[in-house]
Design a protein around this nucleic acid. Structure first.
Lengths: 245, 245
DNA sequence: CGCGGTCTTGATACTTCTCAAGTCGGGTGG
DNA sequence: CCACCCGACTTGAGAAGTATCAAGACCGCG
């Protein structure tokens, strides 16, 4: 089918090529910071928690996906933000009132910095953190926009688009990626009920836009069609696509 | 009535006293920054817009309330965040894809910084901005938690509590404040329909918790009762109350 | 291969949205 | 200073969308 080929052609423009663009910039900045911080490996599910007293500890994600979660008694849990490789995670950015933590959603590796801000070399960390927070703040703003302006189907499409742009690889069948969150985690991120989310994903599969070869694995078969599902997807593309045209 | 007196006693612990605590810290840090930036006065409704090309311009709010707004074609407008005196507003934190701006919600005054980050004195601005962004990121996280976990009534109660803590003054009748947003603005911030918001506020008035002497003026008559309406209010108190116990 | 937890799907109830009509408030001009 | 007028707000009835609950299916782990 000719259209498959043309879709594949577009995908080359859409998905990142390893080692290019922003990836390379990030690596350069990180290389100098690695001498200051200590590397830590985490398994999926391990948590970075803000201690009760004030803390200036900062982590930088080297690899993997993190989820900022909060749980207030009597409320369903909230997923506040997603963090990817390169993101700075200052524990001070977590609200302290509730059980709140950054949880590794996949196997992960981080750099740990503690008390380095006051050192002369600390300026590098401060500037890296600031730049990363600007980025993350824009993403949180978009997250808020998703939740306040979109209906359930558009929200789910937006999140899957984000995952595809961040984690996806193009193959013969489309754009494939492993979802780092459970159904419940995705629902909490989107402010939806998990049952509703399930129904919506089933709808995507029924319409042929998406395939699900395993519980955590997705393939977006029709990128253009899927991308059009959410009016915020062009903005999501700006913030999550790693190679600029 | 004795309970009125006891409520009033509690309010003294709850509301800020001018010139104390965090206010004083902020003033000290700002005093040194004022020589670097240029002061600008804004009228309600004026906008700070991110230019198309990358910009390192940063504003610091000296006075007034700002609203980060975004408008995507075909969607209802989104209110992404609220900014108060002391907040740093780097234009780079605004998503750039949509019509997006920080709008003065009241008469306001800001300090404008442009290209100062590279100067040796710029470190002060960088550190101030970083610290402010950490604060604002925690507030955005709470905003997301509000929208994803609370029902409509709890959301409205949370927002009014925030305004009371930020802008309120205790008087004989309760905690009084001027709402800096229109009904539509509040609804957009909360991800609610303006009609629904109106109904909920009417409910608060009917139950005697709240009074509304003018279109933009509110008085919370029963602080304890009102505070209990939202399970997130203790967290909101942590982030928005300016005097610690 | 079997078990446990996660996911799916249906029927139903409830919250919230939509649309429309009416009311209110406050700023403007006489 | 008062009356007018326009935009913002209020309120109702009905519709739409999403949540809830329960039963069953599936996947992946051991």
């Amino acid at each position: 089918m000719k259209r498959t080929a043309s879709r594949a052609g577009q995908l080359i423009d859409v998905l990142p090529r390893p080692g290019e663009g922003a990836d390379a910039d990030r690596s350069a900045a990180l290389a100098t910071l690695e001498t200051l911080g200590t590397a830590v490996r985490l398994r999926s599910g391990q948590k970075l928690v803000r201690p009760a007293e004030a803390s200036d500890t900062t982590f930088i994600v080297k690899e993997g996906v993190f989820v900022s979660e909060a749980l207030w008694p009597g409320l369903r849990s909230a997923v506040l933000a997603l963090h990817y490789a390169g993101d700075a995670l200052p524990l001070a950015a977590l609200p302290q009132a509730a059980a709140c933590a950054a949880v590794a959603a996949t196997q992960a590796e981080v750099l740990r910095f503690s008390g380095t801000t006051s050192l002369p070399e600390g300026r590098q960390l401060v500037e890296y953190t600031l730049s990363s927070l600007l980025d993350q703040q824009a993403r949180m703003a978009l997250h808020i926009a998703m939740i306040t302006t979109l209906d359930a189907g558009q929200r789910v499409a937006s999140l899957l688009t984000e995952f595809a742009l961040r984690l996806g690889r193009q193959n013969g069948r489309g754009v494939a990626f492993d979802v780092p969150l459970s159904r419940n985690g995705m629902a909490d991120y989107l402010g939806l009920n998990a049952d509703t989310l399930s129904r919506i994903v089933s709808g995507f599969k029924a319409s042929g836009l998406v395939e699900q070869p395993g519980r955590h694995r997705f393939i977006i078969r029709d990128w253009k069609g899927f991308f059009a599902l959410s009016p915020l997807n062009t903005s999501i593309d700006h913030l999550h696509r790693r190679v600029r045209a």
